[in-house]
């Protein structure tokens, strides 16, 4: 260390009083005052202790793994071993190794003007010769590469999946599809008490991926008698016996709209909190959803079972470019 530290630091912020030299050596830089230098054996012993504890922890981890102890025993022994060994190594580096500070010069990364000149020259002149002389060849090579690039897209991209065609716009609900629950049981008009709900599917699709993902429909027994006041015009026959059915796919990001707020008559999407008013055609009254949930027109057969009198009259779920 230089003499610099034996003197009080001469910075801009001088103390208000005139400094008076203390008779004793009170400098912090006195090596005798540095704990590690004052007690090197102690530091060594401390580091040795962390290594031994770490070693024992690793042994315990081995035992825990061998004996198949609880996961917390595995984690505790592994974590403790790592922490102790790590602390020991770090302390070793910090207290018992020459820390410096040392200085290293930076080399200028930039090349000399000549080197740059000769490199650029080779790049431009030597590289340009073939192209200048054989422009047609170069063009043909370029064209070939381009076609290869486009053609390569076919196996790489096109075969990844089918074209969407019309599958996003349609569901498997048809006129006459019976409403069934997850297990395939038909829903009768006496199945649900007023105020209760169920997730329903078109019969035969309840255990299909597409049935689960696209056809899922929210059925709620909203009132004791139909039709329900407040429904959009033209839908008075869609809600027999007070049953209402909407697509369960949120028109925002396609999550199942699964939260039924009975007192407020709202259907809430748990993902981004869009709220749909059940009694008014599921119009969105709050949140990021832009459109009402499509409604499934219902009917009741002679035995009291609910079925769809028609499919959805518009695509279900979130918006996309081809959606009319």
């Amino acid at each position: 260390m230089s003499d610099h530290h034996d003197e009080p630091e001469s910075t801009g912020d001088e103390p208000s009083r005139t400094p008076v030299q203390m008779p004793t050596s009170a400098s912090w830089s006195d090596p005798h005052l540095q704990p590690a230098a004052r007690h090197p054996q102690f530091v060594e012993r401390l580091i040795g202790f962390t290594f031994i504890v770490g070693l024992l922890s690793f042994c315990a981890f081995g035992a825990a793994y061998w004996q198949n102890w609880a996961p917390w025993a595995l984690g505790l022994t592994l974590g403790a071993g790592m922490l102790f060994v790590g602390t020991g190594i770090t302390a070793w580096g910090k207290y018992l190794m020459p820390r410096g500070p040392f200085v290293e010069e930076r080399h200028v990364l930039q090349s000399s003007k000549q080197d740059v000149e000769s490199f650029t020259n080779a790049l431009v002149e030597r590289g340009a010769t073939p192209v200048k002389r054989r422009k047609v060849l170069g063009g043909m090579l370029g064209a070939g590469m381009g076609v290869f690039g486009i053609v390569a897209m076919f196996p790489l991209l096109r075969s990844l999946g089918p074209l969407p065609k019309n599958t996003l716009a349609t569901t498997d609900w048809k006129a006459g599809s019976y409403l069934v629950d997850q297990l395939g049981n038909r829903i009768s008009q006496y199945s649900l008490a007023v105020g209760s709900f169920a997730t329903v599917f078109p019969e035969g699709w309840e255990d299909q991926d597409r049935g689960q993902a696209v056809d899922q429909t929210f059925l709620v027994h909203l009132e004791a008698e139909g039709p329900i006041a407040g429904m959009p015009a033209g839908r008075s026959t869609w809600t027999p016996a007070g049953y209402v059915a909407y697509s369960k796919l949120c028109t925002h990001a396609g999550c199942p709209v699964g939260l039924f707020e009975r007192e407020l008559g709202l259907l809430i999407c748990p993902c981004h909190q869009s709220m749909f008013k059940l009694a008014e055609g599921a119009i969105p009254i709050f949140g990021p959803a832009p459109r009402p949930l499509p409604q499934l027109p219902l009917a009741i057969d002679a035995d009291g079972y609910l079925y769809a009198s028609a499919g959805y009259n518009q695509p279900v779920g979130p918006g996309y470019w081809e959606r009319p």
Binding site: A80, G86, T90, G100, V103, E105
Partner: peptide, 24 residues
Amino acid sequence: NVVGSPMYPVFMAKTTGFLFMISG
């Protein structure tokens, strides 16, 4: 210039220790 600790042994020791501590 760059002023600090050298790669070997100080930085190596400290950074290896750090790897173990983070793992822990």
